[in-house]
Each structure stands twice: as C-alpha cells, then as structure tokens.
Amino acid sequence: MRLYYEIALRSFRRAATYRSAYIAGLLTNAFFGAVLSFVYLGIYGAGGSVAGLSVHDAVSYVWIMQSLISIGSGWLSGEIMQTIRSGDVVAELSRPWSFYGYWMSRAIGERAFNLLIRGSLTYLIGFLYFDARLPTSDDALAFTAAIILAIVVSFAYSFAVNLSAFWLIDSTGVMLIANITLGFFSGFLLPLAFFPPALAAVARALPFQAMAGLPAQVFLGQLKGAALLWALLLQAFWAVALTALALVVQRAAMRKVVIQGG
C-alpha cells in the first residue's frame, strides 16, 4: 500500500511541476466555459426552468464539466496505449507490482492534483464571472464521495480501452469511438435531462453517467435522500463492474503477451 501511495504522490508532484501546461489547460477550459455559458444565457432568454434546470443550474453545470475534464470525465488519456505501442510496457510489466495498481496510483495522483488545483480554479472563474452555484456543505460532502467513485469508474474504463492496443496495432480508432461514447452518454456534452426520453433511458442504463453526469447532479443538489443514496450505489456498482472488466481484459492481454514471447 505504501508503494502505491508513493507512486501517487510522485504523480501528483509531476502534475504540479508542469505549471505552464496546467495554466494553459485552465485558460482553455475557462474559455470554453465562457462560450457555453453565453449560449445558455442566450438560449434561456427570459428565464424559467427547462427539464428541471434553471439557467443558473445550466451555467453551473457547464463549469462543473469544464472543471472535471482533467479527471477523465470528458475524454480519455492514451498514455498506457503509447507505452504498449512503443514496447516500453515490457519494463513496467516486469516490475514487482500490480500493473493495474501502478497505473491507477499514477492516475489518482495526477487527477487529485487536477481536481484540487486546475478544476477548482476553473470553477472559481465560473463562480466569479458567471455566478456558478456553490454547493451546500452536505452536497459538497456527497460530491466528494461521488467524485472518488467517478475517478475509479473512469480509470477502469480508460484502462480497458487503452489495453486494446495489445490486439490492435493502431488503436486510434478505438480511442476515438470510446471518447465519443463517453462524451455523449456521460452527460459531459449536454445534461442528460435535455435528452429525448428514449435516449435518456439508454444513457441511464450505461456506465458513462457515473463518470460525469451523476457527480454533477450531486454537486447541484438535485439528488437528496434516497435518490442520492441510489446514485452513489449505482456509481459503486459501476466501479466494481468496470474494474472487474478491466482486470479481465488485463488477464487476457497478459496471455497475449506471453504467446508473442514478450
């Protein structure tokens, strides 16, 4: 356990070192946040509530999503895929630790940094310039749990997709499809509340909302009591299911590597 903590810590520090990279990322997120906020301010016009969301909610939703991009809610990183393609993965597989645990610790360290610094600063811009909503202390506590579960789910998904590179020489296409599906069905591009009923039902049956849509709803205080508990349980279910899937994919991939003779 100590080992994985150290890996996560180093990953956190590494993320903190590239200051110009995260400031640039933050500004880009804030710019998109501003553009989309103006779209909602314009489209709501006089105000009112549409599909249970007021203009205030919709704008806050935009800023939550921009803040969560860097923790894997919007799209996936192809880092593991690149090590498989280049062959560097051999070095990591030969080390005396769990391959899954290693990459997960790295992801947690980096995402913790992104959430605490990049994400919260992005949200601060939304709060200052677009009056994005601040959660109540209860919602903030529930959001912390939701976000931890979201990171576990999104890491498992990303890991499984990345490992497809063991079978396909070029998995750019798989990555592209995986990203489109994630962005659309997670509620990252548009709140699921705005979806037509049939499409919303499909989205709610898939694991993707556990990575973005559900935490955002928790943050906005739309889920209380039993509904909140149900959302967290659903996230926990997907966390277990996708982690199991990722480990199965890893097992199959390891067999594949052995067959190839390393």
Binding site: I43, Y44, V50, A51, F184, L190, P196
Partner: peptide, 12 residues
Amino acid sequence: VVAILFTRFPSL
C-alpha cells in the same frame, strides 16, 4: 448535441 438542445428551446 446542438440539435437536441434546440428541441428544448425555441431559439438562441
């Protein structure tokens, strides 16, 4: 996504 949004709102 834009088209879906416009099923909920008349105009921007």
